[in-house]
Nucleic acid binder design. Sequence first.
DNA 1: ACCTGAACACCGTTCAAGT
DNA 2: ACCTGAACACCGTTCAAGT
Lengths: 216, 216
Amino acid sequence: MPKAPIPPTRREPLNAQRICDAALAVIERDGLDAFSTRKLGAELGCEAMSLYHHFPSKAHVLDALVDRLLGELPDPPAALSPAQRLRVMALAWRALAHRYPQFAPWLALHRWNSAAGLTLLERLLTCFADGGMNTEQAAKSLRVLGYYVMGAMLDETRGYGSGASAVSPVADEAVGQKFVAVSQAGEYFRPAHFDATFELGLGALLRSFGLEAKAV
Amino acid sequence: MPKAPIPPTRREPLNAQRICDAALAVIERDGLDAFSTRKLGAELGCEAMSLYHHFPSKAHVLDALVDRLLGELPDPPAALSPAQRLRVMALAWRALAHRYPQFAPWLALHRWNSAAGLTLLERLLTCFADGGMNTEQAAKSLRVLGYYVMGAMLDETRGYGSGASAVSPVADEAVGQKFVAVSQAGEYFRPAHFDATFELGLGALLRSFGLEAKAV
DNA sequence: ACCTGAACACCGTTCAAGT
DNA sequence: ACCTGAACACCGTTCAAGT
């Protein structure tokens, strides 16, 4: 007589892909600070310790997530000018932060020294070189553009949830009375203005690079 | 007969100032992630719980630190042009991150909705207004400049210690072989070039704002 | 008023054991 | 090979108690 079939409640075996999917879901649902190996295990129907068979640490899971998201970024068509290609990549990079606002801080602050990150850096540096820059100009311009996009990603998303706001904020009424300029400017700090504001700085920086338009 | 004097080992009573001093010392010594209320208590020679008599939570201690550091930022002389005043404030803000690199992530990501923060925002917005901008232009330009400075602060300091680098970095030799442009650019990513790189973007953004020079 | 100690509900990770 | 359960060394914070 054959053995009884395994109970139907027996779940799929774990793998890196499923763990990453679940991690991103937990982070976007509960926030990055509340993300723990134990909670991730519960989400997957296993013990937290089972994860260590697929990743050496919690940080490795988050890094795998970064690599996956970086790998999704587009390679802009070569027909575009260098400045246009840089614009496309900057906007796609920023868009990732808006798609995963809770994960954004890890995404933005992570160094691009993984394979996917280095591939992107190479691609970006090529844009500057194609625009006529030498190595030094390209490296510094890349850094400048990176500072700007990274700061925007963090500033635009931190309001969404993860609690980096002051613990003892000044009450809104007091702001209106004592900080008139801030109070009036507040309207333009809202999400409705994010795209236009980002474009303002992005355009200024790209123009300042003086990249030669590539013949199409 | 009078009571015996209190033993000389009895320490100073706690106060907010001493707690903040110790917190900053612990953070810069051990890193922001390793900063805990228990460790702060040990540094001060008291139980972790004693801190709660002076601050309602650990986050409040860190916020008090932000407020103190923001309060140290200079108010540039009115004789300077609006663009020059903005430059002075941007550099002073960035300099704080370099003075306290471990604390920099909290400093940079914290919203300026405390009294000290709002005072600074008011001062910055006044520069844009003095340069001829209306409320909308001033608000958006402030945001743009903030993105840039914030990103630079984080990017320049994260290498110093708190471990936001990839957990599985590509080995240096492999970078040299497979990512030639990145490898060559690496020289210009070093701290020796931080000031010049930051100036590149700062100058570009300030010029793009088209602020009128104020007669001196 | 100021501080303590035990306790609660969590963490990430190690280790020996199970199947 | 893959997963588990107990355990270790931590967290932030609550609470009742001490002086």
